[in-house]
Computed example of a mutant assay.
Amino acid sequence: MPVVIAQLARRALLARGPDALAATLGRLGPFSLGALLATLVLLFGFQGEQILAQPAIIALLAVPILFQVYLNSALAYGLNRWLGVPHAVAGPSALIGASNFFELAVATALVLFGFQSGAALATVVGVLIEVPVMLSVVKIVNASKSWYEARG
């Protein structure tokens, strides 16, 4: 339903011109960021006790995420190099290829299972692990630019 409403609103705004859509998106931007931050704060707040009480479960969730992100990003980055894709495209490609899209998983878990569910816990752990790991992938991609561009 939200997608349909958004598409109808988008069409109505575009009918008034591209500037109307851009202005509306500009006004909504701070609210959407605020809503995302509020959701994350609530989610972490509801799951904080679970995270501290179940370190073994957290490790069981975290290890495969770590492995998957590094493996998929390395594979995507290496394939981009092998195919001759520019570094500026390969870096984002490695991140997209490794992403678990936890923002979608968080939304789905909350709607289907609630804030205090195991599914919500798994998505919280996913966010906690994936964000720093993705930042490390960015660092690795940036640090390896000279290697990437030295195609021999």
Results as ranks from 00 to 15, higher is better:
K145A: 13
H87D: 04
G126T: 06
A6C: 09
Q54I: 01
A20F: 06
I96T: 13
K145I: 04
A62K: 07
V125W: 05
S99F: 02
V85H: 02
T39R: 05
R27H: 08
F67K: 07
A20T: 10
A88V: 07
S146A: 13
W82D: 00
G114F: 12
G114K: 11
L104W: 09
L121Q: 07
G45N: 06
E149L: 09
L121Y: 03
G118L: 15
L75D: 00
V63M: 09
A53W: 01
G78K: 00
G78C: 01
P86R: 07
A109L: 14
L8F: 12
S93W: 01
N142R: 14
A22K: 13
I5N: 12
G114M: 14
R81M: 00
F44E: 04
Y148G: 01
I5H: 14
T24Y: 11
A38I: 12
F115V: 14
L112F: 10
F67P: 00
G84V: 05
A94N: 02
R27N: 05
L8V: 15
E103D: 13
S117I: 12
F44G: 10
K139F: 06
I140S: 07
R16G: 05
I57C: 03
A88H: 06
K145P: 01
L95C: 07
G78L: 00
A59F: 10
P86E: 04
S73F: 00
N142V: 08
E130D: 09
T123Q: 15
F115E: 09
I57E: 14
F46Q: 08
S73P: 00
L37I: 12
G34V: 08
Q116Y: 07
L25A: 15
A98V: 03
I65S: 03
S32R: 13
V138G: 06
A122P: 01
S136Y: 01
